[in-house]
Nucleic acid binder design. Structure first.
Lengths: 213, 213
DNA sequence: ATGTCACCGAGTGTATACATAAAGGCGGAT
DNA sequence: ATCCGCCTTTATGTATACACTCGGTGACAT
């Protein structure tokens, strides 16, 4: 694995997991020594992070970790509603019904995973990830898929701000199941509506349990 | 201006204007000598281009200029319809009516510019650019604006494939005027519909006059 | 004649040295 | 005492040298 990839992955994780807080300046020599790589691959990693919007160049004086304000969260979910709503509708038109029926079945059994211990909860997140991937594949539109992928990076960061308690996760699983059901039923408008409902609930929960840093 | 910025701008222009054709391998030493910069800033330029999707890394064997197939154009316009439709609706809700009324007025006079010589035609493109910027500003959503900006790079490239004759430009000006009018009238659904109509006409024209490379 | 192995070359990935610019501190002058 | 200017320091921006990997080609053996 390339040194620049390792540096990128490490910094990306540190930012997403809020170990590197917003406003932190990422000096090149400092970070290159911390991560054990030279400045050249580190600069490439910082470029990638800046392109994704996780960092911004502070006027030639190093790059700083981007902040996420409450307005940012609103804007993020506005774009998310636009993209994922359309994606769900397209998946309903073009997707494989049997696959989404299977995903719905698994999502309806998800509460068992959520009430369990932490490893099982990890399994739940993996299941939701599989639903995202199935939608990505079903729409067969690489540009739309790319736009959603670049958005999810920021959303993971936001999710770390909220308390994902068992009650919310159980409700979210049911909402995800509804989306999968609508797609399997080949009903674009219902799929889009189910997505809109899920995202609004999700946004309300994030804003309600938001813990400022 | 930094050397990496110059290299990026030069390569970006060469790709958008189809001077560097799809499949061209951009070897680091070759391009760094051609553009008169060292390999380090050139690599940063290539990274940025790859992040934008104008180039792709060919498995550690240099980066190559990305191709745009007919399917890509369909996918591009599908995403564009999603984003710009929503943007027009949001602009109708949040925008400054007087500004868009003024833009509509100018767009209705645009046929005079189009029938004129080339410098006047440039003025028309500038006018359409001002409409885009006005919508970007009106939606006040940096993430959505960013998504549309990254999309426009590819769209400029597609537009260079089509013949923008006076007849099509005149029709496009009227369609743009309809969008501005709907936004000024604070009618989100009409603004979205007008955008959808415009994009479908635009796509049909591109596909009809498409000249393969 | 064909297949395989080894050597060579080209090109990317990385490290480091050097240039340059900006910011902060210190000293002097008013 | 305060303000202006210069100097020093520390950062990024750039260039280049070195390492390493992946193909390609040629020769040799079967």
């Amino acid at each position: 694995m390339r040194a620049s990839d390792r540096a990128y992955a490490a910094l990306r994780d540190d930012i997403i997991e809020w170990r590197l807080l917003p406003g932190t300046v990422l000096a090149e020599v400092e970070q290159s020594e911390r991560l054990g790589v030279s400045r050249t691959p580190l600069r490439e990693a910082l470029s990638r992070l800046t392109a994704e919007g996780l960092t911004t160049t502070a006027g030639g004086r190093g790059v700083v970790v981007t902040d996420i304000s409450l307005e940012d969260i609103d804007e993020l979910f506005e774009l998310r509603e636009t993209l994922e709503g359309r994606a769900a509708a397209l998946a309903a038109e073009r997707g494989d019904a049997a696959l989404f029926l299977q995903l719905q079945k698994e999502l309806l059994e998800a509460p068992d995973l959520i009430s369990g211990a932490d490893p099982a909860r990890h399994e739940y997140y993996e299941l939701v990830g599989r639903l995202d991937e199935a939608i990505d594949a079903a729409i067969s539109n690489s540009y739309l898929a790319q736009a959603m992928r670049s958005l999810r990076v920021h959303l993971v960061r936001v999710r770390r701000l909220a308390a994902d308690d068992a009650a919310r996760l159980t409700a979210a699983a049911a909402e995800h199941a509804a989306i999968a059901e609508a797609i399997a039923a080949r009903n674009p408008r219902l799929a889009e509506a189910a997505t809109t409902v899920h995202l609004h609930r999700s946004l309300s929960h994030v804003k309600a349990t938001h813990t400022p840093h």
